[in-house]
Amino acid sequence: MKNRYCILQKKEGSLIKDYSTSVVVVYLYYLDKIEICLKYLKNIPQKVDVYIITSNVKLKELLEKNCCEFKNIKEIRIKQNRGRDISAMLISAKDIFINYKYVCFIHDKMAKNKDMIPDTEKWVSNMFENMLGSENYINNVLNYMKNNKKVGLMIPPAPYSKNISRWYTNSWLKNYNNTVKLLEMLGCNNVIEYKDYPLAIGNAFWCRSEALKKLYEHNWKYEDFDDEPLKMDGTISHAIERALPYVADDSGYITKVVMNNVWAECFLEEIQDDMIKTFDILSDEYGIRSLTELRNYPKRKKEILEFVGKSKEVYIYGAGDRAKDCVKYLQKLNIHIKGYIVTENLNEPDWIESGKLYSVSSVKNKNISIIIAVSINYQQDILHILKENKFRRIYLF
């Protein structure tokens, strides 16, 4: 068990005696996202300092008019319109990281097209809810970090939605090599494997500033970042957001994926609904009914193709549900089934084409390929029967 996840209470929390070492840094750019920002700014304890950074002059003016009630906002900074939230974090907010022990960094986000609006809104909700979900929740995050000295970084889950698949697919995309080069440049000694997908996507976090010291103390310049319009993938910005846990690890700290309990409950329910729909499709199309079968699919595919080889006569032993699964499986591999073998009962199920069900004693050709597709409880008995009847080419499905 990797123990990456941490679920904290949203509605209940213990008080913090000293907020003087804690700060929230927010990067904003989009005018129509101000309401979301103000909603979550209200959750920040009044003794926690807040800095807002933007490269949008109009937004800065609007914030100055609408943020008078927030006495803990220390400054609204303007920065160059290059590097977006990443340059805000590493250049404009560099002094903030140096002066505070616990730092929350978060930013707004805009859908790239109309079709992506629901997914992007869900991503934004994920970030803000799991970083600044309530005053009690913020207290719980801070207390957790104070009580767990090895925790250096707390991040929201990678985005999960119908069209943004970062949580359940390889989220390196084009960023494995540039992340490795970035870590080498920073003097980190991590060995990272491509098969180990990055935890951090989206650049929102609570951190112990010491954990990211190698990153923010680098002499970053705005020219280090790609100019607008920013590419969809493969830039230094994409590498930096993925590198965060590795920088923390190199400094001796661990990373936790943190969620508030209310958000986590909805998340788990959605995951289960999606898993049911996914396995309905996998079962109907491939005959795959479990995670074990899904994980074993590449290995089993290779084994079956090698087993069948150039054989012209392939039979399935069985006529039940596992045999039906096996047929679907073999059809995807373009393997034609000659017929179905059973021990003695010759009552053909509706799904088997007439004339293709045979008793084991009626099959005279002993050189055929037989795939046993029955419950595991009966496989060894059937294997024994087939060997007694001089069949040698047998595969257990």
Rank of each mutant, 00 (worst) to 15 (best):
N147T: 04
M127L: 10
I96W: 12
D85G: 05
Y329V: 08
F397W: 09
C207L: 10
I192K: 03
E129F: 07
I78L: 15
V57T: 09
I34T: 07
R300H: 02
R392W: 04
G133K: 04
V151F: 10
K79N: 04
V262G: 00
D108R: 02
K79E: 11
K356D: 00
G13Q: 14
N170W: 04
V103R: 11
I91H: 05
V247Y: 04
K310A: 06
W220K: 07
K214Y: 04
E353A: 09
L173Y: 14
Q380W: 02
N163Y: 14
C67G: 01
K39E: 12
A200K: 01
V363R: 07
R77W: 07
I7A: 01
N389C: 05
M110L: 12
L396A: 06
I372C: 05
L333E: 13
I78Y: 10
Y378F: 15
K60R: 13
V258Q: 03
D250K: 00
E121H: 12
N296R: 11
Y168M: 11
I288T: 01
G355V: 02
I341H: 08
S311M: 07
N189G: 02
T54A: 13
S134R: 05
N178G: 00
I376T: 08
L38V: 07
F397Q: 08
V314R: 05
E270F: 06
V180S: 03
F97K: 06
I335N: 02
P45C: 13
N56R: 03
G309A: 12
E129W: 02
E348T: 15
L199E: 03
V314A: 06
L346A: 04
S125E: 10
A248D: 09
R289G: 04
E344T: 13
R82L: 02
F391Q: 06
H336D: 14
V191L: 14
I385M: 12
N126Y: 06
V262I: 15
I288Q: 01
D108G: 12
D227C: 05
L215I: 03
Q380H: 05
K231M: 07
K174R: 07
E69M: 08
K60H: 05
L142S: 01
P118Q: 14
E348A: 12
F205S: 06
E210N: 07
K101W: 10
K39H: 09
M259Q: 03
E344S: 15
V314G: 01
S237Q: 12
I276C: 06
D284N: 13
K65F: 07
E388N: 13
N261T: 02
S251G: 02
N148E: 01
N189V: 08
T179C: 13
S311R: 09
L305P: 00
I98P: 00
V25C: 11
N365R: 14
N389Y: 15
K60I: 11
K195W: 03
E353W: 09
N178S: 11
V57S: 13
N261I: 04
G133L: 11
M116R: 09
P245T: 13
I16M: 08
S161G: 08
D224Y: 14
K310R: 14
I288D: 02
